[in-house]
Design a binder for these strands. Structure first.
Lengths: 180, 180, 180, 180
DNA sequence: ATATAAGCGAGACGGTACGTCTCGTCTTGTG
DNA sequence: CACAAGACGAGACGTACCGTCTCGCTTATAT
């Protein structure tokens, strides 16, 4: 059933709103009630599908040339220009749709977890941290959030950002806003 | 009509989903059709209500003692502990709801604008920039985004963050992730 | 909408159970909610469709040769052998389905009315009464009921009755069970 | 299991529609599948429960003073005024529900049997026939049908009939509609 | 002063998804 | 190895809400 959600969101290009429970049931070859037996509402199914990584976020891995900033920009460029970014956008939009619809207890699926935990981006930053390339005591997850979250909100609100915008945002996260 | 949206969202504690067009019309003492005469769908009304500042985001101004980091933490603490954060949460959730529902053209209300433009937080950072307290070429809006966006997504997904989480996130933005 | 019910019941040979509200809505070119705006449930719609004579009961008029018993037997024979009886059966089954499903207030559609009021059979008996062919103080409606109701229940329970069964039933009603 | 049906229908006041197979199974302390092992559907179970007399129709026997008409009226009055009539009504409603739902083969449970065969009313009429109180060649079952069936349909459609209505109906069956 | 128009409230409508319910089948685990 | 327990596919139910539409009423302008 979760795979059905991923299929519909990913391949068929459905929005969260367009994604009906009956479609999910049909795609999964399952009765509607069976879905409601296991999840309390549509939001919960979709959320779980997303959080369990059913929707593959990007096909491109983040390069690791040793230069973190260059790697990040390369990857973001690559994502933006290719259609892959659509995946992230679909993912983000669906995620927000599900979150906004859902109640408190559905939201608890997020307990002790960050949205981008499983992303390739996070892994690249984690690698950099392990290689000693980050300031000690820096949480790689926090860095990933500081890059991805503005990016996501930008995508959701104003659409594809410019390269300059992205550079500015990345630089703030890497070098800080304060004078150095 | 926009004020009716704000009233319903703010005082009555409605979600974007719970906010029906008929309720808005009733609250505004207006016929449903009149709403559709001016906006193309529910998302557009709500979005405009939010973007025109109908939903007052915070009552507390960000202090300016000269120490930006301390001021930010003071303010975030204050927000978190008071109920004001609920306003931001309601605002964020409604915003996401409207965005997810809306089509491309409704989203264009965001053209050339950042979500947090009008916030007190942004003003405080802008003040710091003008006082020369930030690295040259740093866009205050980008800094505000880098702080608020992870905060919002954290609120939407996992709920109220811990003080440590907030400090880590603020420090990354101020000092950068790289070694200094 | 009521005509849609009649069409579906009559021409398409649906049972009350097979008759879905969505089908009725589709046949009538109407939204489902519109049906529920005017009737409280499926039973009420179907009941009203039946009671307002949307389902034409029989095409054959009851003959009037002056001999009531002969006329009744002729008519019953004719009905039984032709497909017309199916109409009555469909009508009766639907009626019972609706009645059994419905609540008290829906049943009140029957206030001061007899099921077979509009039937040709009742009219024939009424004609006989006016011609003085019945015992004074005999209510034609009661006579029609005494003939039709056992007939209907027989049809619903055991299927097509034999000619002997019908004769026996008619004779009891005409001549009485007591010795004469 | 059949007793469970009777219990639910009689004591708990359930309608045929409200009578779930799962409820029957629960009441009987039996698995649902076991019911379907013995009957092809819900209608068949309920029908058999009713036809095997699990639902005791009336507690009051029909008196036999020698005056058939007086006895019938006494009994009908008594039934009407007491709650016993509810039993008959529940029985009739359930019967109709089951019949309407059921297919042809379930209906065959009625083969060569009349609905009211086991009723006390039928026995009283049969007694009268054996005592020579009825016209020769009169089938007691037919007489019982001619009295009960309009009565049942009246109950199902318009509710409790008046005493006058009942007298008229009984008189037609006893003396006939024709002039005497 | 009357006529024509234009904007509005009210709310019915077609459509569509929701989440619930029950049927009758199929599966599993226990005594 | 039969049976209770109950998950399952299917699909109808009745509710909610969207965005469109029609209807009168009111107000504003035009003759």
């Amino acid at each position: 059933m979760l795979d059905a959600v991923a299929t519909l969101l990913d391949q068929r290009g459905h929005t969260y709103e367009e994604l009906t429970v009956e479609r999910i049931a049909a795609e999964a070859g399952v009765g509607k009630q069976t879905i409601y037996r296991w999840w309390r509402n549509k939001a919960a199914v979709v959320l779980e599908a997303l959080l369990t990584g059913r929707l593959k976020l990007t096909s491109e891995p983040v390069p690791n040339t040793g230069d973190l900033r260059a790697d990040l920009m390369t990857w973001l460029d690559c994502e933006l220009e290719q259609a892959n970014m659509n995946d992230t956008l679909v993912m983000a939009r669906s995620l927000m749709g599900a979150l906004v619809t859902s109640g408190e207890e559905t939201r608890s699926l997020f307990a002790g977890r960050s949205v981008w935990d499983d992303m390739e981006l996070t892994q690249r930053i984690r690698a950099e941290a392990e290689a000693g390339g980050l300031h000690p005591d820096t949480d790689p997850t926090a860095v990933a959030s500081a890059i991805m979250d503005p990016f996501i909100i930008q995508l959701l609100t104003a659409g594809h950002p410019s390269r300059e915008w992205m550079e500015a945002q990345v630089d703030i996260v890497l070098h800080g806003a304060l004078p150095r």
